[in-house]
């Protein structure tokens, strides 16, 4: 009997500890960071600056939520930065160079993104390339190459207002791009926690073979995952174009790394099956707050990179501790 009660206590305690780390580790990090920066710079905690952070985090936040899906399936998508570039360059050609309606431009932008994502999914599941690292490394180069080729490396500027709306406008003091981020994150939260496909994504990442033997069409889910990741790259591109009223072929260069960093800082496991939408948002915000804060403190960009590196390693180390803890118990 005493054993039973002990067991119960043990799980309750383990549960709270694990819960604490996995759900709030990143949030606590963000809060500490905010407090420290507020002390160090009187310009940090102002409405203006908070809105800056919201806007600056939005491109990475959109890429990161797309990236969360492949990472949940124990995969990766290295191509999102390049997909962003090819999406906005084609949008530029359609809506600026060819003068077609901005609605067509937006559809083209999202469709090109989703299309390259679909290509990633098909390469992985139909050609059976051994790991998405390889298939997406391939498309990363293909998409970037095409982005440079289609306008002979020239940038495109002068987009219509409708296309610029998401990245440029404000609702009151709040940037539309951040409203979009919140909207998208809510959709993803429902998608991942409450739909069958969403739950299957976790199952595949947790144990692909068990998922397959539980009647899940693994290939179909993986194709969806990479298509959505590509679609989010297209959407992030749309926001970027609005922000700078310009599309250029080197846009989004190495953005995949920031997106991966946000997902990992947000508590997702590289081994798949573990990770949340809100953790990812916090991950993206931590990166944006760090950049912004260090910027306000006039810390050089080189040093910023080093700090973000430390944060990634610390975040993953916490994850390792958690895993070690749970395996022992």
């Amino acid at each position: 009997m005493s054993e039973a009660t002990m067991e119960k206590q043990k799980t309750a305690r383990d549960h709270s500890w694990k819960w604490f780390l996995s759900k709030f580790g990143a949030l606590i990090g963000l809060i500490i960071l905010t407090v420290v920066l507020t002390f160090m710079s009187d310009k940090f905690l102002t409405v203006n600056n908070i809105m800056n952070i919201a806007r600056q985090s939005s491109i990475n936040a959109l890429l990161a939520i797309g990236m969360l899906l492949p990472i949940l399936t124990a995969g990766i998508d290295l191509s999102v930065g390049s997909i962003l570039a090819i999406s906005i360059m084609t949008m530029g050609i359609v809506s600026v160079n060819m003068g077609m309606s901005p609605v067509v431009g937006i559809i083209v932008c999202l469709a090109v993104g989703a299309g390259f994502g679909l290509l990633n999914g098909l390469l992985l599941t139909k050609l059976r390339l051994p790991h998405p690292f390889i298939s997406t490394l391939g498309t990363m180069n293909i998409a970037r190459g095409l982005a440079l080729i289609i306008t002979a490396a020239a940038p495109i500027a002068g987009f219509p207002y409708l296309i610029q709306y998401l990245g440029r406008e404000f609702v009151g003091p709040i940037p539309v791009s951040f409203v979009l981020v919140i909207f998208v994150y809510i959709i993803f939260h429902i998608f991942l926690t409450r739909t069958q496909t969403g739950r299957y994504i976790y199952a595949i990442g947790g144990n692909r073979e068990a998922a397959h033997l539980s009647g899940i069409n693994v290939d179909r889910i993986l194709i969806i995952v990479y298509t959505v990741s590509g679609l989010m790259a297209g959407l992030a591109g749309l926001v970027m174009v609005g922000r700078v009223n310009s599309a250029f072929p080197l846009a989004g260069l190495s953005y995949e790394l920031d997106a991966i960093a946000a997902v990992i800082i947000g508590g997702a496991s590289f081994f798949g099956g573990v990770g949340t939408v809100w953790g990812t948002l916090i991950g993206a915000l931590i990166i944006a707050v760090l950049r912004n804060g260090l910027n306000l403190l006039n810390v050089s960009a080189d040093f910023q990179m080093a700090v973000i590196g430390i944060v990634i390693i610390a975040a993953v180390y916490v994850d390792v501790l958690r895993q070690r803890n749970s395996k022992k118990g």
Binding site: N49, Q56, L253, S254, N292, N295, S300, A301
Partner: peptide, 18 residues
Amino acid sequence: NGPPSEADVIDQVNMIDN
């Protein structure tokens, strides 16, 4: 201020923002 590389275009825009 300046981003880590000339290719970090949006970073530069963010810095101007800040």
